[in-house]
């Protein structure tokens, strides 16, 4: 296999807000999944995690949210160590989570799902209006139970619920899985809009094309370890590196 020069990742330009993982080790019970994983996501940047199934992408997000305990290492948000906090304090610091498979509160209505998002950081009514403006469809479905929505609408709701926190950092785990193209485009536009407002975005996505069209940088993962991190620009020009990490 031809060796490919691995570009150095762009150094942080503006030191302000960011999400940083410092050599975290984590797993389920005694089964360790993440090994010395380090990442940093700047505000106003989309960092995409790429890797094969079982590389530890979803586990990374659960570790950030405090849903699984760290064995060692730290997660910093704006320099504050949030890995020592109880799990329910992590979102209150400003991290919005859009989990794989959406994980909505299914028996609750659209309004109630959003209200839970609003309560987390005591966001006001103006936040709700802004979020509903991003997803007008949810306004039409406002009193319906979440489980009665279509797949695309459910993804909109999962995204809207996370945005109700007015997050500083947003974690998206395969947000376009199983959606039709028009929905994928709608979600993509919202992600890009969030980047413009200065949110740090960590995106897990299987479809490489979708990644390359929005990501600023791409971090590869293999067997729970962080591998190369590079500018998406380079990958768009040279696909071979992507093949190396996620090719079958």
């Amino acid at each position: 296999m031809k060796s490919t020069p691995i570009a150095r990742c762009r150094p942080p330009i503006w030191g302000g807000m960011m999400l940083e993982l410092k050599a975290i080790n984590a797993g389920y019970g005694r089964a360790q999944v993440l090994r010395d994983l380090s990442l940093r996501v700047q505000s106003g940047e989309i960092l995409c995690l790429l890797g094969r199934n079982g590389a530890g992408k979803t586990t990374t997000m659960q570790a950030i949210m405090g849903l699984i305990p760290l064995m060692s290492g730290a997660v910093l948000l704006d320099g504050e160590d949030i890995s020592q906090l109880p799990a329910h304090e992590v979102p209150r610091r400003g991290i919005g989570y859009i989990p794989q498979g959406r994980r909505l509160f299914n028996g609750l209505t659209v309004a109630e799902n959003l209200e839970i998002g609003l309560m987390a950081r005591k966001s006001g009514h103006d936040t709700l209006e802004e979020v509903l403006d991003l997803f007008p469809r949810l306004r039409e479905r406002y009193r319906q139970r979440a489980q009665t929505l279509s797949g695309g609408e459910q993804q909109m709701l999962a995204t809207a619920r996370a945005l109700c926190l007015r997050p500083k950092a947003l974690l998206l785990d395969e947000p376009t899985e199983g959606l039709q193209p028009s929905m994928i485009e709608a979600i993509r536009q919202v992600i890009v809009k969030m980047r413009q407002t200065g949110v740090a975005i960590l995106l897990v996505e299987q479809r490489v094309d979708a990644v390359l069209s929005v990501a600023d940088r791409v971090a590869f993962m293999e067997n729970g370890r962080g591998e190369a991190v590079m500018d998406a620009e380079n990958l768009r020009r040279d696909h071979s590196i992507v093949e190396r990490y996620v090719g079958v």
Partner: peptide
């Protein structure tokens, strides 16, 4: 509402500050 959300999905309740 917080109780019903916790009943539906404990981990997501945590992930949304409950």
């Amino acid at each position: 509402l917080l109780m019903r959300a916790t009943q539906q999905d404990r981990d997501m309740a945590l992930a949304f500050g409950i």
